[in-house]
Structures are given as C-alpha cells and as structure tokens.
Design a protein around this nucleic acid. Structure first.
Length: 919
DNA sequence: CCAACGACTTGTTGATAACCCC
DNA sequence: GGGGTTATCAACAAGTCGTTGG
C-alpha cells in the first residue's frame, strides 16, 4: 500500500516510493540491523528506590506537578505530581536572582554567553542599558547569521564546550539555584547537588503534591528522580563551583567531554540538509514578508557561536534542580561515536538532486518550496476531499414513554448519534443532553411527540448498535481484509497531492461526518449537532493549472475554488459548531512542507539558547520594576520559562473555561510562605495543572502584589495579554514567542539528560535512559493521559502475583532452613511431599524468586508512575528529533526503537544529522 | 489599539492493529 | 489461540500567533 511507501521513505533507496528522505538511508539500514534485537525493554525503570527518595524531597525537583486530572471528570487520579526535578543547582546562577551579588560573578564565570550578549552578564550592575543595546545588536546580527550559526555552532560548541551553560537550562532548574543562592547563599550550593541532603528543604523547591491523594499525588518528577549520584558529584565541587552551572560540572565529570570531541570532526557534516531546505522565513520571525531577500546562508560569520562556558542556562529549570546522574550503568562512559556511518554518505547526493521533481514523483529532497516570500508552493495538484457515506436508516425504534416511535431517517440519525454514546460520560452530562435535545428538536419539529428527554429511551438503538459492532467483530479476517481493501481503493486518489512535482501524502482528506460535538471539559457547546458537510460548504485550494476536483455530488458545486499559494491548505469548511472557525485539510506530517516548518520551529528554539541567558537576566531585573506592566511581563515570562506554561490567549464565553499564563486568575495561584506558589488551574483541553513550586522571592512578592485588591475571578496579569507579551519577547529575540520556551525547555532537557545519563550498557538499558528523559519532559510539559479503565484491576492482579511469589519464597526459605538441618521439606499445599533439594539449589531458587519479585515490583511502580503521563505528545511536538537521532547514532541504538513508523516519516528531515549534534 | 479573522500547531482520545502471556 | 494489553493511528478539539481593517 501506498501508505507504506510513504512511511518508509527513510529506508527506501529506490526512488519509487514516496521517499522522502533519501539520505538517511544508510543510517537507517544500520539501525535496522541493530534493531534486530527487538525487545526493547524500555519499560524498565530505574529503580524504584530512587523514586521514593525523590518523593520525599526531591532533591532536584522542585516542581511537582500534579497530574492527571482532567478536571471535568472526577477521576480519581489527581494525584501525581511529578516532580520535575530541577536541578537546583548551581547553575541557576545565571539567572541570578536579583539580589545576590554573587550573581554577577557567576555570570561572569559562566561567561559562556557570547561576548556580544554577555556583556550584560559580566557587569551585572549596568546591565540594563548595556544589555539592551547589545541585544539589539545581537538581534540584527543574529538574524543575519542565524542560519550560519547553527551550522557553525555545533562546531563551536563542541570546541568551547559551550553547551553547558546554564542559560541553556530550563528555568526550573535555574530557579532553584537562584533560590538557593538567594536564600542561603553558600549553603545552597551544596544543596543543589545533593538531593538527599538535609539541606534540601530550603533551597530546593520541593514541590509537594497536594495532599489529596495517595502516592499518586506525588509529583511525578520526584518519582523519577534519579540518583544520588549527583550528589556525590556535587559534593565534590567546591564552592566556586556553585557558580557554575550544574551542567557544566557534571559534564566535566562525565563523559560529555568525550562526546564532544568527536563532534568536532563531524561538524561539517552537520545538518546541512536542513539549511538547504529551509529557506523561507525561517529565521526570524515570522514576518512573512520577505524582508531581506532570500536567506542565503553565509557561512562565514561565525561570530555567533558564543563561547559560552557552561552554564546551566540551557537546561530546563526544572531539570537543573535535579541533576543527578541517573546513575544508570556503572559502565564508564563509552560512547563511540564512530560508528554510525550513516550520516555522511548520502548527503551530497541529495543536494544535487534537488529538483528532480518531475520525474515520477520522486520524493526526496524537497526543496524549493519556498521560493519567495510567503509562497508555499508553486504547483499544487490534488483530488479534493472524500465525503462520508450518506446515512443508512436502520429502522430500529426507540421508545418514548415506553412506546416505540417512528422516526424519519434524519431524526433517527441524530437519535442514533446519541444512543451510541451511552457508555461515555457525555451521555449523563446535563449540558450535553440539553444541547442535544435543542438541536434534535429542531429536526423533529414543533409538533413531534418527542418533547422531553426524560421520556426517551434509546436502549433499542443502543443495543442494535452493539449487535452491529459484534457482527463486525465476528467477521473473518478475509472479510475484514476485503473490506479494508475496498475502502482503500475508494480513498486512494484522495490520499495524495502533488506539490511542486512531488507526491506528498495528504493528512485528513476525509470530511468530518456528522455527529454530536464532543467538547473537552465543561464545554458550553457539547452535545450540539455537528451537521453534515456538503460540497457547497467546502472551499478548495489548488494550483492554477491543476484540474479542479470534480464535485462528488451531481447537482452541487464547491463553495469556492482558490489558487492561493501562500497557504498550505488544500481545502477547508466552516466548523459547524463555531461557524467563525474553519476546518482545514492539510498535507500529512510527513510532507516536506510540514517537515520544513517543523525544522524551523526547532531552529528557532535552538536560537533561544543563545539568548536565554540575557533574557533571564533581564526579566529577573524586572521583577522589581516600578512599572507594573513591566513587572507583569517579567513575572509572566518567568513562569513561562520556568514552568513551561502556555501563553494563555483570551477565550470566549462559548468555550470551555481554561487558562494559560496570561489568563491566570487570582484563584489559580496561591501564595505559600515563605516563597512558594501553588498553581491550580485547568489548562488546554481542561487538563488540570497542579503544582507547588518555590520561586524567587521577588516573584513571590510580585504575585502577591498582582493579586491584591482583586477577586478570585480576576486576571492576575491585568496589564497583559498574549499579544503584548509576545511583542515584548520579540524585542528580545527575533521571532520569539511564548511557545518557543516550551520547545526550548523540552528539547534542552532531553538533550541534557541523554547526555548526562547515558552511561553505556546494552540497548535496553539505553532505552531506559531515553524513556526516563522523555518522561521528564512530559512531566515538565504536563502531558497527561487518562488512566485506563482497567488500570486498577491490572494493578491488583500484579499485587496478587507478587504476593503469590512471596508465599513461594517463604516456603523456599523454610525448606532451606530444614534442609540445612538435614530435615525433609514440609508437605506442599496439597499435603503431598515435596522433593528435597540441596541447600545450594534452594538458595539459588530463592535468589531467582527474589529477583523476579523485585522486577515485578519495579514494573508495577513504573506502570503506576506512567499511568497518567503521555510520552507521545512531547515526542511528536517538542523534542527536536535530531537530538534523538544523534543520540541513537552515538550509542548505536536503532532509531526504530525510539520512533515508530509515522515518526520516522515525519522526521525524515532529521535523519541525517551528525552524531555530534547537540541541541 | 483591538477584535475578528485566518492559518497552523499542539493535544487527548477512541478504535484498531499488534503483541504477549498463559 | 484467545483474552488482555500495549502500540499506533486517525480523528478532531483546542491552543498559539500573525494579519487585517476599522
């Protein structure tokens, strides 16, 4: 199937398929071989023991977010708060809390920041003016250089070891450090490092979970925390070290250095491809217009690479606090970069190819899409969209006041939509029912017998539906296959579009079928009828010279046909629930158009790494600004940076009541003396965000000020909204917006954690490290999933099994002691005599059983920890795939262990990254 | 400056396919 | 060889952020 083709692109060498990616081939192949191993036991966790410890006071972690809970549903799980750990460490210094004089120093130490920008840092005092000017300069430069930069950068970094600077770290980590300093200068330092140390309490931000529940409540982060290993390192460090970012410290200890080395050589290889590809607006900002002509990449300017030293800035704050070494394996670092041959080979080839286009749809390099300004494509050919089949009445009668009712097909259709949702919780929600009845009655008409919901009994329809489902299930596999093929045949022509001569997969070519709107959370419109979309509702966008897709319904026509090459959508219709909004048909994630913007997104986030230090210094300074707006901007930026909060646009009354940073209400943030904040609100998708985090005293104070004189429902940041905030951010770095911080903190966290925690071992062990890092990111971003219905049953089953094993163990112990005394074993449960075994044999059995029990307990803990954590979201949207690819290359882990088929296709553009790539 | 658009990214979920263990 | 899991994918809701017009 076609599908396959696309997904595989990476692997294929031939051009036939939709191969997107050629270059990587080599690599991928390699991977494959490796992959043979197959079983990835990613699941293993690091030991539980660690976790526990962490809970208590996560060394690092300061933050714990409570997960789960979707607000609406009363699910039990509110609990978990992950701790994201932060590394408290030192690194924070960069952020430097206002107060500490130290800061200044530290900053200087860290120095990493590029000279340009750094100025501020060094002289902390005069920061402001100087900074600004610098910044502006920087910006300009930056924009120009940008591209080059990253090219260069890698090399530079390697050399200088810049990566480590604190700036790169996520705020959370920083904060901690900052706090530490602030509160207890010296002490703090030590603290950071040592997770377990008693000092912790103060310095770190320990998050506590809210009390509600049991362990669930614990912050995830804490659970995950790693080992104490860190502590040790920390301890080693002398005081001065404090100033340095943890990261840097660690690195020294660790293997990182080594890694870097290899990188150098590779540098050249780095990412070339991307650059080529991305042209359009990539860099800076979005200004659509092409400002400066086409971006050429100049390479020379390497200035950019700033020689930062290592600070933690780049580490996510959260992480910083933590810092541990996961301690995973004892092995000494062994990384061998060497191997991964993969990279280089193809590249060259590719470039040349470039525009192969016409020829059969080769996929490979895409290329030129963006030639001009806002232009996204030159030629676009596709077949439009496919409509769902018309409604087929089933004739099953529902009951009204106990009597069967005849319904016309249109009426029955809507009744069926409701009947089918019987086992969801929507079926019992008042709002849902109300909206449903309102819309249904419009169809039934005024005089219909059916008037009140309470007399309706949809059970017959529900049962009919269940029977249909059952029938489907009972079909033989041949029948199923035939059906599938039939469907595929019908859809095939809609699945592909030809963009600039290249065949690309279309994302959602199926028009949404009618149904009842399932809004998330307490959505005011839930239950409303989503009417059927007709061709006359649809606007098609297609190349001027391409044939307009035929309208599938005879007497009708498309609403409109456009030829707009500045947008990427192929079609759209107005959302029936909210007519002011649209539903678009776009290309699939594996398309080059999407890949390119994805890459640009990550490049922008990487660019933030160069600015983050200055940005943090600036907002820290503004925590105490007399200008309220400035103060609010500073605090909001801090929260976004440190906690990875979303920007928080205003919402209408006809949407669920959720908030983001700029829309936080007074009631969403509580002050917990001396300087902790408790966040409790519903974020995107009405997912609960609950987190108690220690913040820098000036922030604590500022929040208190913002709250005074307001009532619960008022905005904390009354002088602010997302456009003002983003306008401000844009002054700090071209193209910077609030969401870039999430991308940055997520990716830098992954990069740092992989770098520090990968110690060696076999592939499964490395996967544990990867998953651990992935988990950490998911916690930082508060990516949650609902607990599966069978979760508790699964857990109790596991507990039962463990108990059973424990019983066996006890029996073995008794046998052993008897055997030692020369006595025969006791009879078994059935009263039958057991074979007597030698003590050595029994001893071995006991050890085996113990190991088994331990493993089961560990698995169980992991399962519990992950029950509400969604790892996929960050992988798809926040983690620069090049980090993962490079890590896989460095550590000989098959990329297929990390990315599934669709991710491999989506990230085709990242596959040929050099093994030395660092975010 | 702001509200209304408009386009595109991010996020959770449910259905299904794939897998695994007894 | 089947039932329970787990992984994957599509669906589609819900954000973000830029632009535009008054």
């Amino acid at each position: 199937m076609s599908v396959q083709a696309c997904s595989n692109p990476v692997f294929d060498e031939d051009d036939d398929g939709p191969i997107i990616f050629k270059k990587s081939t080599t690599v991928s192949k390699q991977n494959k071989s490796n992959s043979e191993v197959k079983k990835s036991s990613c699941q293993k966790n690091d030991g539980q023991s660690e976790r526990k410890a962490s809970n208590v006071c996560s060394p690092s972690g300061l933050v714990s977010i409570s997960q789960n809970n979707k607000a609406p549903s009363p699910k039990p799980s509110l609990v978990k708060s992950p701790v994201t750990g932060t590394k408290a460490s030192t690194s924070s210094g960069s952020v430097s809390p206002v107060k500490s004089p130290i800061t200044g120093t530290k900053a200087s130490t860290s120095g990493k920041v590029s000279p340009l920008k750094s100025p501020v840092v060094s002289s902390k005092t005069s920061v402001s003016a100087a900074d600004q000017s610098k910044q502006s300069i920087k910006q300009n430069i930056a924009s120009v250089k940008k591209e080059e930069k990253h090219l260069v950068r890698s090399s530079a970094e390697l050399d200088s070891g810049s990566d480590d600077s604190e700036d790169d770290k996520p705020l959370s980590s920083r904060l901690f450090s900052g706090l530490l300093k602030g509160s207890s200068n010296n002490v703090s330092k030590g603290t950071i490092a040592s997770p377990g140390s008693s000092m912790m309490p103060k310095s770190k931000l320990s998050l506590k979970r809210s009390s509600d529940d049991s362990d669930d409540e614990k912050p995830l982060s804490s659970k995950f925390q790693v080992k104490p290993h860190t502590a040790a390192s920390a301890s080693k460090l002398s005081d001065d070290e404090d100033e340095k970012p943890l990261a840097s410290r660690l690195q020294l200890n660790g293997s990182s250095a080594k890694v870097a080395q290899p990188g150098k050589s590779n540098i050249k290889d780095n990412k070339r491809p991307l650059d080529a590809v991305s042209s359009p607006g990539q860099s800076s900002v979005k200004r659509p217009k092409v400002e400066s002509s086409i971006p050429t990449k100049v390479k020379s300017v390497s200035v950019k690479s700033e020689p930062k030293l290592e600070d933690d800035d780049h580490i996510p704050i959260a992480q910083r606090m933590k810092k541990d070494g996961t301690g995973t394996k004892p092995l000494p670092t062994k990384q061998k970069v060497t191997k991964f041959v993969s990279t280089p080979p193809k590249k060259t080839i590719k470039k040349t190819k470039k525009v192969t286009k016409t020829s059969k749809y080769s996929k490979s390099t895409k290329v030129p899409p963006s030639s001009g300004e806002g232009q996204k494509w030159t030629t676009l050919v596709h077949n439009g969209v496919i409509f769902p089949p018309p409604y087929k009445p089933h004739g099953v009668k529902m009951l009204y006041k106990g009597e069967p009712v005849d319904l016309k097909p249109e009426e029955e259709e809507v009744a069926t939509m409701f009947a089918v949702m019987k086992d969801t919780d929507y079926a019992t929600k008042e709002k849902f029912i109300e909206n449903f009845m309102t819309d249904w009655k419009k169809i039934l008409g005024k005089d219909h017998i059916i008037k009140e919901f309470k007399y309706c009994d949809f059970t017959p329809i529900y049962e009919w539906h269940q029977r249909e489902k059952e029938k489907k299930k009972q079909m033989t596999s041949e029948e199923k296959k035939a059906l599938k093929e039939e469907k595929l045949k019908q859809e095939e022509k809609y699945m592909w579009a030809i963009v600039d001569g290249i065949k690309e997969k279309v994302g959602n070519f199926r028009v949404e079928p009618p149904g009842l709107f399932r809004g998330r959370g307490e959505h005011p419109k839930m239950g409303k009828l989503k009417k059927r979309i007709l061709p006359s509702d649809i606007t098609i966008n297609i190349g001027k010279d391409a044939p307009v897709p035929e309208c599938p319904v005879p007497g009708q026509s498309w609403k409109e046909v456009k030829h707009d090459n500045t947008v990427t959508w192929l079609a759209f219709w107005n959302d029936p629930i909210n007519p002011r909004e649209f539903k678009y048909v776009f290309l699939a994630a594996s398309s080059s158009l999407k890949g390119q913007s994805d890459k640009e997104k990550y490049e922008k986030a990487r660019k933030l790494k160069d600015y983050i230090h200055t940005i943090r210094v600036n907002y820290t300074k503004d925590f105490t600004s007399k200008d309220v707006t400035k103060r609010q901007i500073a605090v909001a930026t801090y929260l976004i940076d440190k906690l990875a909060l979303r920007a928080g646009n205003e919402k209408d009354d006809d949407e669920a009541d959720t908030v983001g940073c700029c829309t936080l209400k007074v009631e969403n943030v509580n002050l917990i003396p001396p300087n902790s904040l408790e966040f409790d609100f519903l974020g995107k998708d009405s997912i609960k965000y609950h987190n108690i985090v220690e913040v820098e005293p000036p922030v604590y104070k500022a929040i208190g000020q913002f709250k005074t004189g307001k009532s619960d429902g008022d905005d904390i940041f009354d002088k602010l909204d997302t456009s003002k905030l983003n306008a401000h951010l844009k002054e700090l770095m071209p193209g910077l917006t609030a969401k870039v911080f999430r991308t940055y903190n997520a990716s830098i966290t992954l990069d740092e954690m992989l770098h520090k925690e990968t110690q060696g071992g076999d592939v499964p062990e490395k996967l544990v490290v990867y998953n651990h890092a992935n988990k950490e990111v998911a916690i930082i971003c508060n990516h949650q999933r609902s607990v599966s219905k069978s979760h508790s049953a699964q857990m109790s089953r596991l507990t039962e099994k463990i108990n059973e094993l424990k019983g066996v163990l006890d029996g073995l112990k008794v046998d052993l002691s008897r055997a030692k005394k020369g006595k025969a074993p006791l009879k078994d449960a059935n009263g039958k005599p057991k074979k007597s075994l030698a003590p050595e044999v029994l001893g071995r059995k006991i050890a085996q059983t113990n190991a088994k029990i331990e493993k089961m307990e560990r698995d169980m803990q992991t399962k519990e920890d992950l029950k509400t954590v969604a790892l996929g979201t960050s992988k798809i949207n926040y983690l620069d795939p090049r980090i993962s690819v490079a890590w896989c290359k460095r550590h000989e882990v098959p990329i297929e262990k990390i990315f599934n088929k669709s991710l491999l296709a989506k990230f085709a553009w990242a596959m040929d990254v050099a093994p030395s790539f660092r975010f």
